[in-house]
Design a protein around this nucleic acid. Structure first.
Lengths: 326, 326
DNA sequence: TTTATGTGTGTAACCGGTTCCACATTTCGA
DNA sequence: TCGAAATGTGGAACCGGTTACACACATAAA
């Protein structure tokens, strides 16, 4: 490994000068600078970030904690974060928390041990003292926290939108799938939808679900039609569940959207490729990830920031699981 | 931040003793050990991995480079890697390469600067000197390299399987979607399928594609039916493309599988949720990721390993886009 | 009893950078 | 022309660990 000493020797200067040169701090004479730059090139030198980090107590690393990258909503977020970070030369240490406090704790611990300069987390416990104790900036992604920086979309409005669009398209006996109770955005959506249904005096049922997993989605879809065979509109807690509902409806010989309309949530990439393609409430996941990255970078570099809670808009994406209106 | 010195002071011993104690190297008297352990607990001490890494030139970090986490095949791989690493207390620095040599180079560079002890990469250039020059172990994932450690599945066999199953189910005018030429596994699949079609003397067409992206998948599906409207069997290069084909076929009023059969590749999670659910050639992506992690760990800890090229089996998953045989 | 060996502990060098400080030289305003 | 300020450079301390080495003491073998 070529070190700063090798460069110094090659250039005939001290390590201090090399350091000042590559960091552009302090005075360096133009001629000296040239010698150093030549040496760097000749030896193909890249500074050891570990040594740097030890002294400065900083790094170019941030920690990213997501519940489960296998859930198709999260890759979008992750990619947004990554692109935002990559453009600013930060690197990401990544972990899946499985919404498990212990794992979350462990990851945060090792993030700190590796001198990360910031953390982005999609946690259900933003107010846990795991985070309160950290003395580096944290951005909560897809999760709200009143007084911590966060990037999220308006779940309640999304839920309202879903219900409004479904009512406008004529469903009378609506079933709302209520997502996992411990996941805040899921509850917001649910809340929003129920509000609108109540306001409109529409008949509705609730099916409780407890995860967003593929495997279980199918069983809730079955439960839904077993309990409410005559439902003519389903507001799903996310696109995976919506897909399972669609699948089950078709298996039962129902026509979508004629017999039953379905609206999902998230707008994951495959939604548009289903048959019929899935109408859904879109969250701009990629943008959310990117905003989170940029917000975190601002917090890291400027210490504090005015707009610390960024809410991105949701929108109704009309596809083929809902009927057309004029 | 609490350092080893604080622990030493609190326990009334030297830092060397604390170090020996927490690393379980050298002699430590039982009484002393207790004092140190108490101090560690009392101060809630966790060693600074950066300082450790600087001296030992090692770390508990590995680099993971995937083309694009947004492609639904990769989260599975990533998750497998993560679980394998997590269980052995390694952490992952993650990057998306976009199959772009420059980005790949940059990531590998920063991996090294951060003292990672190993790399897992899904690259199209396993033989590039980016990797040859590294003096830490590298495992190629989902990519083959004759003389480097790798974990992959048998693409050619998968392609053969797809063609065989399709022929066995009566398709006569088959269209094979050929994946991007620079992606080795895609070409293996294609090769395998074409071999079988040739051997069987079946009429077939080829549609060339150049990426696995969602956006473009739809246009290839359109192109496919525009050129070969009468095709009665499509072997897709992966499940995304297969989904787009399915979607387009249905849009054109074709019945699947009666009028046209479709076989995908990968078995991404959503495949089973499509309507009709997608028959596909399954690659055990999660297991591949996990195997890659374990192989890399063996390489890191033992220096070398006998079985460095791990091939995992592919299998035909029969669902509803293919006809039933007795 | 002597000597070798095993056990237990502390001091200090080291990893590869960054930065404080001292010192030398140059530039510039009065 | 002189003193102050600006410019340029190197030595050495420092970041928080690990480990080589020296040394003290206990135990066992000769």
């Amino acid at each position: 490994m070529v070190t700063i000493k090798d460069v110094a020797r090659h250039a005939g200067v001290s390590v201090a000068t090399v350091s000042r040169c590559i960091n552009e701090t302090g005075y360096v004479h133009a001629d000296t600078r040239k010698k150093v730059e030549d040496a760097v090139r000749a030896l193909n030198y890249a500074p050891n970030e570990v040594a740097r980090s030890l002294y400065t107590r900083k790094s170019k690393l941030i920690g990213l904690l997501l519940p489960d990258i296998t859930n198709p909503y999260f890759p979008q977020l992750a990619r947004g974060v990554e692109d935002g970070m990559q453009a600013n030369e930060f690197r990401i240490i990544f972990g899946n928390s499985d919404e498990n406090e212990q794992k979350e704790q462990e990851y945060i611990q090792t993030f700190i041990q590796n001198n990360v300069v910031g953390v982005i987390s999609s946690t259900n416990r933003p107010d846990s003292d795991i985070y309160a104790k950290l003395n580096i900036p944290v951005v909560f992604l897809d999760r709200t926290s009143s007084d911590s920086p966060s990037v999220y979309s308006d779940g309640r409005k999304g839920g309202r939108l879903a219900a409004q669009e479904m009512i406008a398209r004529g469903s009378k006996r609506i079933t709302v799938l209520r997502g996992p109770v411990h996941i805040r955005p899921a509850q917001d959506r649910f809340q929003g939808a129920v509000e609108v249904l109540e306001e409109a005096g529409i008949d509705y049922n609730i099916i409780q679900t407890s995860s967003f997993s593929f495997a279980e989605a199918e069983s809730w879809a079955k439960e839904l039609f077993a309990k409410h065979l005559d439902t003519d509109g389903v507001i799903a807690s996310n696109d995976i569940v919506a897909t399972a509902v669609l699948h089950e409806a078709q298996r039962l010989g129902k026509r979508v959207p004629e017999d039953v309309q379905v609206i999902g949530f998230d707008d994951i990439p495959l939604s548009s490729l289903l048959s019929p393609s899935l109408s859904t409430i879109r969250q701009p996941a990629y943008d959310m990830g990117k905003e989170a990255a940029l917000l975190l970078i601002r917090l890291i570099e400027q210490g504090k920031v005015d707009n610390r809670n960024i809410q991105l808009p949701v929108s109704f994406v009309e596809r083929d699981t809902t009927r057309k209106v004029d």
